[in-house]
Amino acid sequence: MNVFRLIGDMSHLAAIIILLIKIWRSRSCSGISGKSQLLFTAVFTCRYLDLFTNFVSIYNTTMKIFFLASSYATIYLIFMKFKATYNRNHDTFRFELLIVVSVILALLINHEFSATEILWTFSIYLEAVAILPQLFMITKTGEAESITSHYLFALGSYRGLYILNWIYRYYVEGHLDWIAVLSGIVQTGLYCDFFYLYITRVMKGKNLTLPA
């Protein structure tokens, strides 16, 4: 554990909590892509199956359980409790495509051809692109509530901080995992436009609206 990973994990945790608070307080999931949330739930489920087979630390186990539980809770809020507020007609990204491509890539490019390793690799590839339905939805509506943009900023920063963690681990521990690193770079890259808008608009107290 190094400082980049710790701040990255805290940023990830903050993102999830911000999202739950937004939905719970406003009693609405308006502006949130249910498809991205479904993909994140699939990511956590496939990656954290090792919860039952591989103990790392109390910290690791606690975080995994929290991420799993909170993602299922988010899905419940969006598709059941507050489903009347879900903007289904704006959430039209073909997310099946992301799953298919991630499955194929995981079968072709992995560290070891075993069930757990392929599930882990699939979760890494899928996570890299899981935000696309959400970003697509914002592009379609042309705006996002400020709390939604805080959520996205925290969520995007998390993988960016992980890149710093991987650079650190490469130099200090000699550890380098290309699958995680390249996917993390793609994942962070997808947020570039959003980061620019966030810094130039939301941080100055304006709403996040896309230039026409």
């Binding site: 990973r5 994990d9 990830h12 090792d50 591989n54 790392v56 630390s57 690791n60 975080m63 995994k64 991420f67 560290h111 070891e112 390793e117 882990w120 992980y162 963690n165 521990e173 550890h175 995992d177 699958i179 995680a180």
Partner: peptide, 10 residues
């Protein structure tokens, strides 16, 4: 194996 070292990450 080396890839197992990534599994301590979230």
């Amino acid at each position: 194996k080396d890839s197992s070292k990534s599994k301590d990450e979230l």
